[in-house]
């Protein structure tokens, strides 16, 4: 029964038609807050940050695979690492780049550390749960994909993603949509092949495999070299777990990872509200109609008094 998870559950709810949806929203939403925990056989990628040399081959591979526009600077131009976006922050994913490599100079580390950023393909994605047209979908293979033909452009998913991943094609007036890494779902993952970036990497920084196997592998590596790695696999538990996971030799919060995200999926923070929706829907009508009767009775009594 685990297979009948939230997503199929929601679809079932939709059949109920618009009128029921308008009122019945809450109950389905509520059911949706039970932890889903991810598909058992979903795939993932383990990224060993210690091995990355910052060659940007993966960025180039992604650009080609996804048919993205040619960037201003070629992929062998390493000056992009010094580029700063607003707030002195490193470059981030954009409508033209679904993955970017960032450089961190860490005190006490011989070489700078490079970090590849892309969608983490969460088990319980915030983007998915916040989208009001249900554009997102977590596939059994583990990818979080989206249907750009229904995206309205409210950009709530961008607000919700704790990793600041989804971008938006603001430049388009006619058909702006959300843009992010889809783990090469259409062209590769669907057929069991690893994403383009993973395959392209000359340093074998990334390992593609079943998420559960990858976790075992990561912990095995850490226990084999406890002096090298910090004892944390980032993404194992963060916001309910992610398909992309990371190993590092410096603490994660020193290299731009948010270590305060907690282990609960983002939707769990919304559940207080979702829980009160059915209460309001059921209690309010009775309550207020009651008030009305009461106050009118007073009037009626008053009128009687006046008459007598």
């Amino acid at each position: 029964m685990k297979k009948l998870n939230r997503r199929s559950f929601l679809k079932g709810g939709l059949a109920g038609g618009a009128t029921i949806v308008a009122v019945g929203t809450s109950k389905q939403a509520l059911a949706g807050t039970h932890n889903f925990g991810g598909y058992p056989d979903s795939m993932g990628v383990l990224v060993d940050l210690t091995k990355c040399v910052g060659c940007r081959t993966c960025e180039a591979a992604c650009n080609k695979e996804q048919g993205l526009p040619t960037p201003d600077k070629p992929f062998d131009d390493l000056s992009v690492f010094e580029e700063k976006r607003e707030g002195g922050l490193p470059r981030r994913t954009s409508e033209k780049a679904y993955t970017v490599v960032q450089k961190y100079d860490v005190e006490g580390r011989e070489h700078p550390l490079f970090r590849k950023v892309q969608c983490n393909h969460c088990n319980e994605p915030a983007c998915l749960t916040s989208c009001f047209v249900n554009a997102y979908k977590k596939t059994p293979e583990g990818a979080v994909i989206y249907d750009k033909t229904v995206c309205v452009g409210c950009r709530t998913c961008m607000i919700a993603c704790p990793f600041y991943i989804p971008a938006y094609s603001y430049s388009s007036a006619i058909n702006p949509v959300v843009k992010k890494c889809i783990m090469c779902y259409d062209t590769r993952l669907k057929f069991g092949r690893p994403p383009a970036c993973v395959e392209s990497c000359p340093q074998e920084v990334m390992t593609f495999g079943k998420r559960t196997d990858l976790l075992k592998l990561a912990h095995q590596r850490i226990s084999e070299k406890p002096d090298k790695y910090v004892d944390q696999v980032y993404g194992e538990t963060e916001v309910g777990g992610t398909a992309w996971m990371y190993m590092s030799d410096v603490p994660f919060d020193k290299i731009g990872y948010d270590n305060h995200l907690g282990t609960q999926p983002i939707i769990s923070y919304v559940k207080e509200f979702l829980a009160m929706v059915p209460m309001v829907l059921t209690i309010w009508p009775a309550l207020f109609t009651g008030f009305h009767l009461l106050s009118n009775r007073k009037d009626a009594l008053k009128n009687d008094d006046n008459k007598s």
């Binding site: 939230r6 929601l10 709810g13 939709l14 618009a18 949806v21 019945g24 929203t25 809450s26 389905q28 939403a29 949706g32 749960t129 916040s130 989208c131 009001f132 047209v133 249900n134 554009a135 249907d147 229904v150 309205v152 409210c154 709530t156 939707i267 919304v270 509200f273 979702l274 929706v277």
Partner: peptide, 16 residues
């Protein structure tokens, strides 16, 4: 779209 084309009833914005 959120009303008639593609519904995401579990989302808060849907309710809004």
């Amino acid at each position: 779209y959120p009303m008639f084309v593609s519904l995401g009833p579990a989302a808060v914005l849907f309710l809004v």
